[in-house]
Measured scan of single mutants.
Amino acid sequence: TRVETATETAWISLVTALHLVLGLSAVLGLLLLRWQFPAHYRRLRHALW
Rank of each mutant, 00 (worst) to 15 (best):
T1V: 14
T1Q: 15
T1R: 07
R2E: 15
R2V: 15
R2L: 14
R2S: 15
R2W: 14
V3R: 00
V3A: 02
V3I: 14
E4V: 12
E4H: 12
E4W: 07
E4R: 08
T5A: 00
A6I: 03
A6G: 15
T7P: 15
T7C: 00
T7G: 07
E8I: 01
E8D: 13
E8F: 04
E8R: 03
T9K: 09
T9R: 11
A10L: 08
A10R: 06
A10T: 10
A10H: 07
W11M: 09
W11A: 01
W11Q: 06
I12R: 08
I12S: 07
I12T: 11
I12C: 04
I12M: 08
I12A: 08
I12Y: 09
S13R: 06
S13V: 11
S13Y: 10
L14D: 05
L14M: 10
L14H: 05
L14C: 06
V15C: 06
V15H: 06
V15E: 01
V15T: 07
T16C: 13
T16Q: 03
T16R: 03
T16I: 15
A17I: 12
A17T: 10
A17S: 09
L18R: 03
L18I: 11
L18G: 02
H19E: 08
L20H: 01
L20N: 00
L20M: 11
L20I: 13
L20Q: 00
L20C: 13
V21S: 07
V21W: 05
V21E: 02
V21Q: 00
L22H: 01
G23P: 06
G23Y: 03
G23N: 03
G23H: 02
G23V: 14
G23I: 15
G23Q: 04
L24E: 02
L24K: 00
S25K: 00
S25M: 07
S25V: 09
S25Y: 06
A26F: 15
A26V: 12
A26M: 12
A26T: 11
A26Q: 00
A26Y: 06
A26L: 14
V27W: 08
V27D: 00
V27Y: 09
V27L: 13
L28M: 14
L28S: 05
L28V: 04
L28E: 00
L28R: 01
G29A: 13
G29F: 15
G29M: 11
L30M: 10
L30E: 00
L30H: 00
L30K: 05
L30T: 06
L31I: 11
L31R: 02
L31S: 10
L32V: 13
L32E: 00
L32A: 12
L32R: 01
L32C: 09
L33Y: 05
L33R: 02
L33K: 04
L33T: 05
L33M: 11
R34T: 07
R34C: 12
R34D: 03
W35D: 04
W35C: 10
W35K: 07
W35V: 07
Q36F: 06
Q36A: 09
Q36P: 05
Q36T: 10
Q36R: 13
Q36K: 12
F37Q: 00
F37C: 14
F37L: 10
P38A: 14
P38G: 13
P38Y: 15
P38I: 11
P38V: 11
P38W: 11
A39F: 11
A39G: 12
A39L: 13
A39I: 13
H40G: 13
H40D: 06
H40T: 10
Y41S: 12
Y41K: 01
Y41G: 08
Y41C: 15
Y41Q: 06
Y41L: 12
R42M: 11
R42H: 15
R42A: 15
R43H: 06
R43V: 11
L44M: 10
L44T: 06
R45H: 06
R45M: 06
R45V: 07
H46W: 05
H46C: 04
H46Q: 10
A47H: 13
A47Q: 12
A47S: 13
A47M: 11
A47D: 04
A47E: 07
L48C: 15
L48W: 13
W49L: 07
W49I: 02
W49E: 02
W49A: 06
